[in-house]
């Protein structure tokens, strides 16, 4: 059970050994995807093994930043006090041009503009000194 004080703060990622590179990349304006040198699998998020072949020869390459909205949901009731001032906002399930999907939120427009299969492009938005969140705007 968390305290009311903690509930009022927005959760921020704590990069770990597997994911530090991802968050460093985002801070520098790049979304890094892992490419498996053994089987060619492309994956999001960063981890020590390829999820397909268990290979460990993984290379980080910047994503094109282009994707499509596979699904979305506009949040009208905030999940706790920290997000109360943000509603309504559109949570996106983005399918990146490289294949992997990721969760994000819509930026640079009103949530009711979002449609299925809409083309979107990455925007890295700083939320603290160390963390920039990958959001998407209309392409």
């Amino acid at each position: 059970m968390i305290s009311l004080e903690d509930a009022a703060r927005k959760p921020l990622p704590s990069p770990d050994a597997d994911t530090a590179a991802l968050w460093r990349g985002l801070r520098d304006g790049q979304l890094l995807l892992q490419h498996c040198d053994d089987c060619g699998n492309v994956q999001f998020y960063q981890q020590g093994f390829c999820r397909h072949c268990s290979g460990e020869n993984l290379t980080h390459r910047p994503a094109s930043g282009r994707g499509k909205v596979h699904s979305f949901s506009v949040v009208h009731r905030a999940p706790g006090p920290a997000f109360k001032n943000d509603v309504p906002y559109a949570v996106l399930l983005v399918e990146l041009a490289e294949g992997p999907r990721m969760i994000s939120t819509y930026t640079g427009g009103k949530p009711d503009e979002v449609t299925f299969d809409m083309d979107v492009v990455l925007v890295c938005e700083p939320v603290s000194d160390d963390i920039a969140l990958p959001r998407f705007k209309r392409a």
């Binding site: 059970m1 968390i2 009311l4 509930a7 927005k10 959760p11 921020l12 990622p13 704590s14 990069p15 994911t19 998020y45 949040v75 009731r77 905030a78 999940p79 706790g80 006090p81 920290a82 997000f83 943000d86 906002y89 949570v91 990721m102 969760i103 994000s104 939120t105 939320v127 963390i131 969140l133």
Partner: peptide, 24 residues
């Protein structure tokens, strides 16, 4: 508020929760 937030705590701390994604 805590009930809602507790339900949300079950989402991933790095790739889901920062975007304000309720389990709903």
């Amino acid at each position: 508020e805590l009930a809602l937030r507790s339900l949300t705590e079950s989402r991933d701390q790095q790739y889901e929760m920062p975007f304000g994604i309720p389990v709903a």
